[in-house]
Amino acid sequence: MRDTRTAQPASQHIARTQAGRLQNAGASTGLVDSGARMSVRGVSKSYTTDRGVVKQVLASVSFDVAPEEFVAIVGPSGAGKTTLLRALAGLMPPTSGEVYFDGSPVTAPPERLALVFQDYSRSLMPWMTVEKNVTLPLRRKKLAKEVQKRLSSEALAAVGLGDIGTHYPWQLSGGMQQRVAIARAIAYQPDALLMDEPFASVDAQTRSDLEDLILALKKQYRMTIVVVTHDIDEAVYMSDRVIVLSGSPTSVRQVVDVALGTHRDQLVTKSLPEFVELRNTVLTAVRRPVGDPTA
């Protein structure tokens, strides 16, 4: 991915990119009531730096996510993927455009949505035990203590962690910490799960374990999942659709449907010719400099 960052020329061809987006996005129209779980409509975001310089990060990003769909978002680092996810999660209002969750405009974090952060080590509270971390979001649901405890141990079991409720996050390895963060999200019982480069800083073995874990959890809990990733193999392997972001400011470059079925396997799926082809399609889209006419 790193090489693509330098390959971005400053020129912008927003018109072309948008046309491409509309074609690729296919069914998605301006309708809010399209049955989508999440809708992103022409979202732009500009940051004003301390010195008053306005920097546009996102330029009119639009896409839909259907219920129980698994969407992967790929793009070079600094493209604004985290920015986009924070807008989706209701943590940051876009400069223009709208975000909808189940048809209602998002102005605050939606109740039925959970977010797993890129920096898991900083998203867990180090002053709380693992169990307290997992049950913290449940407190407002006014559940009985035993129910909270049960949800917590179920979620921890679901992510493959046994009896570690009494440990502190800093006593765990990175992979285990990320599992705790995922368990916290699952115990919250969301309809949609957003993940920001969830496996970027764990080792390769843990990474593929966690990929399969997420796929299994998605089936089990029937969640809608949006995952941001750097890893194109991972994006294709896990998702039903890959959204390629690029340009400066960033917009949707291309949307790639991943018709690899609902059952995925690290060895089998990744050696399918279709997988290789999809992977190359995405890679080409990521690498292609903005303005290259070959679509």
Binding site: L91, A114, L115, R139, Y188
Partner: peptide, 16 residues
């Protein structure tokens, strides 16, 4: 910032 985002995205009550 991550801790703050976490607290907001899980809609913690003010006292929590």
């Amino acid at each position: 910032l991550t801790i703050r985002d976490t607290a907001f995205s899980y809609r913690l009550r003010f006292r929590d």
